[in-house]
Simulated scan of single mutants.
Amino acid sequence: MLKYGVTHRLSTAYHPQTSGQVEVSNSGLKHILERTVGENRASWSDKLNDALWAFRTTFKTPIGCTLYKLVYGKACHLPIELEHKAYWALKHCNFDLKTVGDHRKVQMNELNELRDQAYENSLIYKEKTKKNHDSKIKNRVFNFGNRVLLFNSRLKIFSGKFKTCLTRPFTVSQVFPYGTIELS
Rank of each mutant, 00 (worst) to 15 (best):
Q117K: 14
F144S: 03
F144V: 12
W88G: 07
K60G: 01
R115I: 04
D134S: 06
G5W: 02
L52D: 06
F55Q: 07
V100L: 15
T180K: 13
T36I: 14
G160W: 01
Y14M: 00
N139R: 15
C165V: 01
H31I: 06
K69A: 10
Y4S: 06
N132S: 15
W88N: 11
A86D: 09
Q107D: 10
R168T: 08
I157M: 02
T7H: 03
V175P: 00
P79C: 13
F55A: 13
L155E: 03
T129E: 15
P62T: 10
L67Y: 11
F59G: 07
L149D: 00
V106H: 09
T18W: 02
V37P: 06
K91M: 11
N49P: 06
L155G: 04
H84R: 15
T18V: 03
T180Q: 11
T99V: 14
K98Y: 15
H92M: 13
E113R: 12
V71G: 06
C65H: 05
L2Q: 12
C93G: 13
I63Y: 13
G179Q: 01
M108Q: 13
Q174I: 05
D116M: 11
V24I: 14
T66A: 03
D116I: 07
C93Y: 09
N152S: 00
F142D: 02
V37I: 13
R168H: 10
T171N: 04
T61S: 14
H133Y: 15
L2G: 08
G64F: 03
L2C: 09
N40F: 11
R104D: 15
Q107S: 13
S173M: 06
K105V: 15
T164Q: 04
V148S: 01
R35W: 06
L155F: 03
V37Q: 11
I63S: 09
G64A: 09
Q117T: 13
Q107E: 14
L149S: 04
A86G: 04
R9S: 04
I137E: 05
L183A: 00
S153N: 11
D134N: 09
L82E: 14
V6D: 00
L10T: 02
K156G: 00
T129I: 12
R41I: 12
Q17R: 04
C165D: 00
Q174W: 07
D46P: 05
A51W: 03
T58I: 10
I157V: 12
M1Q: 06
K3I: 01
S153M: 06
H133W: 09
